Simulated assay, not measured.
Amino acid sequence: MPTPLSVLDLAPITEGGDAAQSFRHSLELAQQAERLGYRRYWLAEHHGMPGIASAATSILIGHIAGGTQRIRVGAGGIMLPNHAPLVIAEQFGTLAALYPGRIDLGLGRAPGSDARTARALRRDLQTDPDQFPQDVIELMDLLSDAPRSAVRAVPGTGADVPVWILGSSLFGAQLAAMLGLPYAFASHFAPAQLMDAIALYRATFRPSIQLQRPHVMLGFNVVAAPSDDEAAELATSLQQAFVNLRSGRPGKLPPPRPGYVQTLGPGERALLEGVLSCAAIGSPETVRNGLQDFIARTQADELMITSQIFDHQARMRSYEITAGLGV
């Protein structure tokens, strides 16, 4: 049976483009993903990033859900340290009331921003590291049918909103297993602890009301095109974006740059080999092989495909090719 595929949309703002264009493209991609049979369409909270338009994640989720009919739409994720749990319960309770049975809530503990932007979000940078698990439990209580808290989320109480834990380390794996929640690992940009985190999550998972068996969804980069050469050129936009970000120069998603990798030094090449080790870039056959190898190695229950491609039509085509591979 094929592994279910979902979409992670970073709502890229391209060079020469703006947020309004990004939102139009996201809706068109979500509508295509629904037609192609993708299971979920998730958006991620990032702040102060010139190339990512999804800072107001809940609003954008509503925009996408309102323009589609069946596909699940959610957050991959909401960075909970930036928010009071009550506010997120109200926002996602509202989304669940508007789009019943279609809303997911993935939670992360990173700020999704730099320290200066985090302070502007009124986030206490000295927060106790144990606060994130407590906030997750508080949020789940607020969304439950019979909250223990005297405070009520309206809308929110009793909302049908599955909660996921996101992570790129062992911390998230432990928390997801302890709470009996599905786990999404950010292997599309931080794959170093992937196998250890999966093993820990599966070994220590405790069944819950929401989930009886462990469920692992893994991020995976795909750039699919008719030929390996075309895909390799399209992928240079993603490669430039990673190098720029890790060099402290985040910007809008740049156009492809033929021969880009050959211009890099050993350190930058090593960086790309690391962060893009969970990726398939190439023709349909190349991408199929890459996906099959990754699924065989990880036994993933679901993959969340992200395709950071400058040209919108090429990005749409990449998702279409991927959906048709039957992996």
Results as ranks from 00 to 15, higher is better:
residue 231 A to E: 07
residue 323 A to M: 10
residue 319 Y to E: 04
residue 142 L to Q: 11
residue 274 G to E: 15
residue 304 M to G: 00
residue 240 Q to W: 03
residue 265 G to P: 00
residue 237 S to A: 11
residue 252 K to H: 06
residue 234 L to H: 05
residue 114 D to G: 08
residue 320 E to A: 15
residue 226 P to Y: 12
residue 234 L to P: 01
residue 249 R to T: 07
residue 319 Y to K: 07
residue 191 P to R: 07
residue 76 G to N: 12
residue 255 P to C: 04
residue 246 R to T: 11
residue 123 R to C: 08
residue 288 R to G: 02
residue 262 Q to A: 14
residue 325 L to P: 08
residue 57 T to Y: 03
residue 61 I to K: 00
residue 37 G to F: 09
residue 64 I to H: 01
residue 314 A to E: 14
residue 112 G to A: 07
residue 53 A to N: 11
residue 7 V to H: 07
residue 315 R to S: 04
residue 185 F to L: 10
residue 96 A to N: 04
residue 293 D to E: 15
residue 97 A to T: 14
residue 2 P to Q: 08
residue 326 G to T: 08
residue 43 L to F: 10
residue 50 P to H: 09
residue 33 A to N: 11
residue 130 D to R: 14
residue 321 I to Q: 03
residue 59 I to G: 00
residue 3 T to M: 14
residue 132 F to G: 02
residue 116 R to S: 09
residue 203 A to W: 11
residue 19 A to P: 12
residue 316 M to F: 13
residue 306 T to Q: 06
residue 42 W to I: 06
residue 264 L to E: 08
residue 39 R to K: 13
residue 77 G to K: 02
residue 55 A to F: 11
residue 39 R to P: 02
residue 64 I to P: 00
residue 77 G to M: 11
residue 52 I to V: 15
residue 15 E to Q: 15
residue 295 I to E: 13
residue 249 R to L: 08
residue 44 A to I: 15
residue 318 S to A: 10
residue 192 A to F: 09
residue 286 T to M: 01
residue 310 F to T: 01
residue 159 A to Y: 07
residue 140 M to T: 10
residue 225 A to Q: 06
residue 229 D to N: 04
residue 5 L to E: 04
residue 161 V to R: 02
residue 185 F to P: 02
residue 222 V to P: 01
residue 5 L to K: 05
residue 301 D to L: 06
residue 64 I to K: 00
residue 187 S to A: 15
residue 48 G to H: 06
residue 303 L to N: 00
residue 82 N to F: 02
residue 320 E to L: 05
residue 81 P to C: 11
residue 236 T to I: 01
residue 193 Q to Y: 13
